[in-house]
Design a protein around this nucleic acid. Structure first.
Length: 452
DNA sequence: CTAGGGTTAG
């Protein structure tokens, strides 16, 4: 039922000589889908007899509009709850970010099906609890239920976020055993898993093995290459995509433009941005603008970046903070304090608690000998009660995860890691335009924890 | 006939 049709549906419903429960249920769903929550609830209360479908429709509808409490009330008032009823509650809680509630429902339900497990695994993944999601995945396999397409896509996504290449490979093997690796959604998730685990070769191999590609397959491989700084390969894939019938979307161009940015391909970047707007008729988003400013800025074309901002304004768009951020980053590299200050202050107007901006501005002042201005920035930061979040990163090696937090140095291999990092940064220093005079400071890392 | 699950960037 489309929005314009709901009126027509209502007319028919009113004119009907007789209605049954199915008719009422259909009408209620239509009301919810078109945003008429009051009418939906009115019908629900008015209808002569309610079956399980009626309740499930109302719970899902209320959950979809964020009315978690009323959904709970309807649920609590039910006598006969089906698996779908319980799953609707889990789904609703997950959708509204209440993962703990979702798990409580899961724990209490008398019978679970594949969807119940999938919802919990997906929900945990979406809420930064991927490791717990994996635990549920293992428990699921110990039950008498078999993982399906949705299970595997969620698990691959978790593997790509953790990231855990080992688990990803293991899961890959399981999809082959079950034949689910032939499904396009599963393959797509697998490409992203391999890409984000740093294994572009396997990502490409999976991509190449697929008989059919959809826009997500192409986006996954393009963004994968772009993310790894393989700008040329990303663009090669995009050119191959153009030979197919698959239409690129806005995400494709985020990949393409960031590829140009990482590879320093300024002319191509200008061309693809124009191509996106004028040939594909895609409205640029703030991400696209950010990519272009980043591309121009990295290359030192600060003036062109500034006039590009005018072009954005001409589209009737207010410059988003992320665009100013890209410009600020460029100014930092190319030591353009004048524009950098404009960019930084523009961000702070909208995001006064953005600690990174204060630090970059202070650093820029300091490195150009304006110590007093740097101190003013620090004072402002302190005055606003802004603290920097310590940096954190993690990596999986030989089945165990190593988590590093900026500041302390308790990792057992701290000295060896520092030594190797210094070697690496010396190596990189020869390839960067700017000589590595910036950092004689010791690289500070620390060991925080381990997971299995 | 009607109800629950969604993979892509930064």
């Amino acid at each position: 039922m489309k929005n314009a049709c709901i009126v027509e549906a209502e007319n028919l419903f009113d004119k009907m000589p007789q209605r049954n429960t199915v008719t009422w249920n259909t009408m209620i769903r239509g009301y919810f889908q078109n945003g008429f929550f009051d009418k939906a609830m009115c019908s629900f209360n008015q209808m002569p007899e309610r079956d399980n479908f009626s309740y499930n429709t109302v719970i899902a509808g209320l959950m979809q509009c964020g009315d978690v409490n009323n959904a709970r009330e309807v649920f609590d008032g039910m006598v006969d709850r089906s698996v779908v009823t319980w799953n609707s509650m889990i789904s609703g809680y997950v959708r509204n970010g209440l993962i703990d509630e979702a798990i409580r429902v899961f724990d209490n339900m008398p019978i679970r099906d594949v969807v119940s497990w999938n919802l919990v695994i997906f929900g945990l993944g979406e809420n930064d609890c991927g490791e717990d999601g994996i635990k549920f995945f293992i428990r699921m396999k110990e039950s008498d239920l078999f993982p399906d397409q949705s299970t595997f896509t969620s698990v691959f996504t978790i593997c790509s976020v953790l990231p855990s290449l080992d688990l990803g490979k293991q899961t890959h093997a399981q999809t082959i055993k079950t034949g689910l690796n032939c499904l396009i959604a599963v393959s797509n998730a697998m490409i992203t898993m391999y890409a984000r685990c740093g294994n572009m070769q396997s990502a490409l191999q999976e991509f190449s093995s697929m008989p059919i590609h959809d826009v997500i397959s192409w986006n996954s491989i393009i963004c994968g290459f772009a993310h790894h700084g393989e700008g040329k390969k990303a663009l090669e894939m995009f050119e191959r995509m153009r030979l197919t019938d698959v239409k690129p979307n806005d995400i494709t161009f985020v990949g393409v433009l960031s590829a140009c940015s990482h590879a320093g391909l300024v002319d191509q970047g200008r061309y693809y941005f124009d191509y996106m707007k004028n040939k594909c008729f895609l409205q640029p988003t703030s991400e696209h603008y950010t990519c272009v400013v980043d591309l121009l800025g990295r290359f030192g074309l600060i003036d062109e970046a500034m006039s590009f901002l005018d072009q954005i304004r001409a589209d009737g768009v207010e410059i988003p903070p992320s665009v100013w951020g890209a410009l600020l980053g460029a100014c930092r590299i190319h030591k353009n304090i004048k524009v950098g200050e404009i960019a930084g202050e523009s961000i702070l107007e909208v995001e006064p608690s953005n600690s990174g901006v204060y630090l970059i501005l202070a650093e820029m002042f300091l490195s150009s000998g304006r110590k007093e201005d740097a101190e003013k920035i620090w004072a402002r930061m302190k005055g606003n009660g802004i603290k920097k979040q310590p940096g954190c990163s993690w990596i999986e090696i030989n089945n165990s995860g190593h988590v590093f937090l900026s500041g302390d140095r308790s990792h057992t291999e701290f000295r060896r890691i520092c030594f190797l990092l210094n070697l690496l940064s010396a190596e990189m220093g020869t390839k960067i335009l700017k000589p590595s005079n910036a950092t004689s400071e010791e690289i500070r890392i620390s060991f925080v924890g381990c997971y299995e």
